[in-house]
Nucleic acid binder design. Sequence first.
DNA 1: GAGTCAACCGAAAACGCTTTCGGTCGTGAT
DNA 2: ATCACGACCGAAAGCGTTTTCGGTTGACTC
Lengths: 362, 362
Amino acid sequence: MGEPTRLKAIAAQLNLSQSTVSRALNDYQDISARTKQLVREVADELGYQPNMHARRLALGKSETLGYVMPWQDRQATESFLSELMAGMAKALAAYGWDLTVLVPHSVDEELELFQKIARTRHISGLVISRTYSDDRRFQLLRDLQIPFVSHGRSNDSNATAWLDVDNELAFAEMTAHLASLGHRRIAHIAGPEVYNFARQRTDGWRRGIGEAGLDPHSAPLEMTDLSFEGGKAAMQRLLALDMPPTAVCCVSDVVAIGAMQAIREAGLVPGREVSLVGYDGLEIGAWIEPPLTTMRQPQQSAGRRLAEMLISLVEGRTRPSDNQELVRASLVRRETANPPVSDWSEGRQGVRQTTRENSGGF
Amino acid sequence: MGEPTRLKAIAAQLNLSQSTVSRALNDYQDISARTKQLVREVADELGYQPNMHARRLALGKSETLGYVMPWQDRQATESFLSELMAGMAKALAAYGWDLTVLVPHSVDEELELFQKIARTRHISGLVISRTYSDDRRFQLLRDLQIPFVSHGRSNDSNATAWLDVDNELAFAEMTAHLASLGHRRIAHIAGPEVYNFARQRTDGWRRGIGEAGLDPHSAPLEMTDLSFEGGKAAMQRLLALDMPPTAVCCVSDVVAIGAMQAIREAGLVPGREVSLVGYDGLEIGAWIEPPLTTMRQPQQSAGRRLAEMLISLVEGRTRPSDNQELVRASLVRRETANPPVSDWSEGRQGVRQTTRENSGGF
DNA sequence: GAGTCAACCGAAAACGCTTTCGGTCGTGAT
DNA sequence: ATCACGACCGAAAGCGTTTTCGGTTGACTC
């Protein structure tokens, strides 16, 4: 297990020149079939693997893509991050490319990082995520001529490559689903407007409200950050309304789980007095009581697509605007979206007691 | 934003040779302070960043570490994976090193991957996780002379570098805690024995049982895979015993959450008739009803330490056996570990009714 | 004022690959 | 026999660093 075998070694063994061996392995046309055959045999007999650095230096490209982890807010999306990354890494491995993860501490540091990458070029393309509606990164990456694809759109992504879920459609459908169950007061717990996906989801909810023949202006809307506590607080505000909603579209599963907590603490049962739908399709949603109805998008295949798109961009086979892909989320029916019960909120005290007797044993 | 600036450019601008510039930037002793100063100024005025591939080719090392994602069983540990990776990436970034993620589909593919890395050397060290008691990877990595540190020990890790949590101590403490609350029948839902950590945890539980003056042989023990469903099924088996346990030590939070489900479905209340302690410190544990008592180990700092240890190994500053670190998990007191209620299991029917009335409104 | 010795710096090789540019064959046509 | 032409292959340059090895200064000693 001494020194790794180099091109030179296999050249020596066959009495060929190094350059011939190189071209044989790279399947050049001016090498005879017989020679190629021989070279290949000796190559994998000796377990030859090209030295990446030399190769990349000569080629001038890196065959390495970077994924910028969203690490601003410590938690939230974490759980499907690793799944997304696994999808990307697997797809890249099929091409012999590598995936390196970048973890900037702040927005400014992220922009600096881009500058550095632009100079060293040791990463030849980036996947960014957690896009803002107003996202400085797009402009900068274009200026720096770093190929990139974003997981999620922004105001500035018309001409760039992206993979996004149709958030608006998802929330329109979610709202329609709740309306079809008979709900008339369908609220929305929205995420921070700076996030593009949060805005899209609010838009979708609003569209759904309208399409259900309800009044978007009177529909209850609460904002929150993407946390359990935030969801809980937002739900508490909704419950304090004169006319509390009978159903709530939540911007994320984590927020929805927080909302469930608020509902329970008010002595009500999630999915009974107040229906709930989350978003993300987290597995844990199925493990809580009652299991959370939600919408899911496939994370692994998203990772794969992101990787494939970026490769083709880096290779120059396609233009950014050719790589825009909208995927559809699908409803995961569990147990928190049900027809409304008779108007509980007009006789709250009475209802609260009834609930206590029924909240266990689902 | 045309071509990135190279050594040559800054040499030309200062009428110096390329080699002088290189040595100035690398702080060689035989370059005058004045020259170094000048070179540095021009360097960052021009935004110079060394070409990684050239540098790594010349140096013969890669300044890139790899993290082998545990992807055998699709889920389980996912949630803290990204946190761990973020910790690693951040630590590495401080040294200017990169982290690439590797996602083998199977054990065999993982071993092949190691072979490849040994030849290309484009990754100069590995962090592996999800160690088995009997783990082929240790031997192979040693043979291939790839520096590595494992997150978790194995039978074969006496002389290698590792960072592990003291699983045995953690479960001994967990058991002691339950015993101190008054429990006498403390069961264990164990993970697959192939995983070293699962075995350690079972050992710890057994030790705790003994130290509490109880009989390890009669203490109920159930095995399961590391899944929600597995935990649920195991708990069901425990509940079906003649003398069901009043407390259960679960190998992981996910398993514990599954167990809670089984308890609820039996008409009982987790933390009341049956106390539970999980392990991992997952955030979601705090969001369920009732919040799950568990044990936590810091993931981000673990990532950082793993990275630091591996760097010092790759640099040859320390030997593997100098890098063995045992960290301690700490109990996170939530609401599923309480004193036992009076012997419910001898009058189960009656208890069941009582429970129904009290299970809501926590 | 010749010799010594630091202090500084430049030339050039090396890392291992890719790729361009010729060069050497044998073949077929003239 | 000569020429042209493919088919194959070797020599060598180049990618951008690092690092060894001398070589040139000037100051300093006696």
